[in-house]
Design a protein around this nucleic acid. Structure first.
Lengths: 197, 197
DNA sequence: AAATCTTACTAACAAACGTTATCTTCGCTG
DNA sequence: CAGCGAAGATAACGTTTGTTAGTAAGATTT
């Protein structure tokens, strides 16, 4: 009987959730089975249920973990002083870093949230909608003080957020440029597309 | 016994493939069942197999249909005269229009190709890799004649392609700007992020 | 060392899945 | 209108799925 190994401050549930993120990213939520997950953890499938309530709970955990981090960040950025362009850049850099260093969870949260069940689904969609509105509001401010080109702000948000999803391909790529170079390139292109000159 | 309705020049298989695209987009390939599809088509699940070989065949059909269209387009654009920026813009406009007018298929091809089985999977991944290389080569040309900023071309490609995936959100959105406005906004931001000035 | 709580295993379930085999019915062609 | 091929329905199959119940073994506390 091989127990799930844990370091200090990491519950067995955390181990499971982390492995689930990897699996959900690789195969997708529906295609990843609890037996797959059990094998990855080194345990029988049924044993997982000593630590979690259901497969969907794993998805909740992942999606809302990520969503909360982004919400806190935009709170922070809205409160800070700075031009609109500076705020957009800070937010983008945060997105990029999250996608680089918490790849699995962010990716899963981005692509697999559809499989959440109500009421979590509606809740998640709401948070997402609100987040985008707040992001768009920052851009609209920038348009008003002529920092930013006259563009449709929601469209700009949509481009920014999805562009960052492309880091997925960077992760897969064999000949990666450095994470810092990736970040700077993305900022150059994306912010360069916004600024008015 | 209610037959599948077909117009002229549209086989019953085409009807099934088209409905499958809608379903695969809504629920994902794995979560969409053949019984779901049968219901959407207005027939029993087993009856579908008079027209198709397997569920996966539907995915092949969709993924390679889309991939081929993009391959032909980039052939065309490479052969045409024009600056690098013009070529990038043409390619982007094509992507945007495909995403707007063949939403379901393009979306499915983009997000669900993972569930292809070999040898189709490797084949598809190859095509994708080659396409991106050719796109990157156009951008690299632009960098050489100083039309385009000094950026990492593969990163630029990755941003462009994923940004366009954001049109998904536009489709869902209740207060849509017009398709033309969407296209122009995207071009402004994306091409604006590339040009050297 | 005894008692208790935690964590794992085995066995099994009901439901849903893709798919096949068999038979019936519809619609067209001669 | 007879006959044939295309297209549908019914029933069933073997898997795989998420999950539960009951039990044994390890870890921790008394």
């Amino acid at each position: 009987m091989a127990r799930i190994k844990t370091d200090k401050n990491v519950s067995r549930k955390d181990v499971i959730v982390t492995k689930a993120a990897v699996l959900f990213r690789e195969k997708g939520f529906k295609a990843a089975s609890m037996r797959d997950l059990a094998e990855a953890v080194g345990v029988e499938a049924a044993s997982l249920y000593n630590h979690i309530k259901s497969k969907t709970e794993l998805l909740h955990e992942l999606c809302f973990g990520v969503a909360n981090r982004f919400m806190h960040k935009i709170d922070e950025i809205e409160a800070e002083p700075g031009t609109a362009i500076e705020k957009v850049e800070r937010l983008l850099r945060f997105h990029i870093n999250e996608m680089i260093s918490h790849y699995e969870e962010v990716y899963v949260s981005d692509r697999e949230w559809k499989h959440l069940a109500d009421p979590y689904l509606s809740n998640f969609q709401n948070q997402r909608r609100i987040y985008r509105k707040r992001f768009a509001a920052i851009i609209e401010n920038g348009i008003r003080n002529k920092e930013i080109k006259k563009i449709d702000a929601p469209t700009a948000v949509l481009i920014m957020l999805h562009a960052i999803g492309g880091i997925e391909s960077w992760h897969r790529s064999t000949q990666k440029i450095s994470a810092e170079a990736l970040e700077d390139n993305m900022i150059t292109i994306l912010v360069g597309g916004l600024v008015n000159r």
